[in-house]
Design a binder for these strands. Structure first.
Lengths: 109, 109
DNA sequence: CTACTATTTCGCTTTATTGCGAAATAGCAA
DNA sequence: TTGCTATTTCGCAATAAAGCGAAATAGTAG
């Protein structure tokens, strides 16, 4: 296991860690539909401005989001298409509430 | 946003959180090749037995791994195929060190 | 039963993460 | 300039996660 592997693993772990919080996951879900300004995300989320802003910076520094300032507002958007795919994949992998799940398959193997 | 959504999001966040640690990510990478007993994983990992065991229990309770006892040993294996797919997908999405990455595409959109 | 091996659980200290309000910053308008 | 809006940063208290050794548990062998 080279040092490069270790570094890459750390970088990837940061991606997962960033997604490992319900509020941030929700933000990502919203952004799948397209970019949003921070104000929109604050409306959707539970916490206040400072909290949402911090979540966004975590997601951004993990490389999951990108921001762009336009006038007074800052817009965020997803940069890792894989994330959306993975979420869809989980919907097939993780049981739909009561059934054995594996039944439908997620087409992602 | 229903309460069910919130619950599902929390569950998924737990999956991400579990993967959000280099040692656990490494364990998952090893298990992609097939099941392994704890002793093998301890060899591969940095920490001691108790640390590895705790990591395994985190991954298991997130639903990422499954364990099975055989004789004196406990074997763990991956239960979420999506995870492997996602890791491959990231290899395409996240820059191969110096290039703009998006160039090759990961075929996972 | 006793001894031994593989693994987990417990208790603890150290180190992150979270969420919040207050203050700082940046762009726009008057 | 002054003031207003959108957003980020700071400092702090509360909570959670990490790593470790010691003790507990479970299965096997003798």
């Amino acid at each position: 296991m080279s040092k490069a592997d270790t570094k890459q693993r750390k970088q990837r772990a940061a991606i997962f860690k960033a997604l490992g919080h319900p509020a941030r996951l929700q933000i990502v879900e919203v952004l799948r539909a397209g970019e949003r300004c921070v104000c929109d995300l604050v409306d959707v989320s539970e916490g206040g401005w400072s909290t949402v802003s911090r979540h966004l910076s975590v997601l951004k520094s993990a490389g999951i989001l990108e921001d762009e300032k336009r006038g007074l507002q800052v817009y965020y958007k997803l940069t890792l298409p894989c994330v959306g795919t993975f979420l869809d994949c989980l919907s097939g992998d993780v049981a739909p509430k009561t059934k054995p799940a594996r039944a439908k398959g997620c087409g992602c193997r």
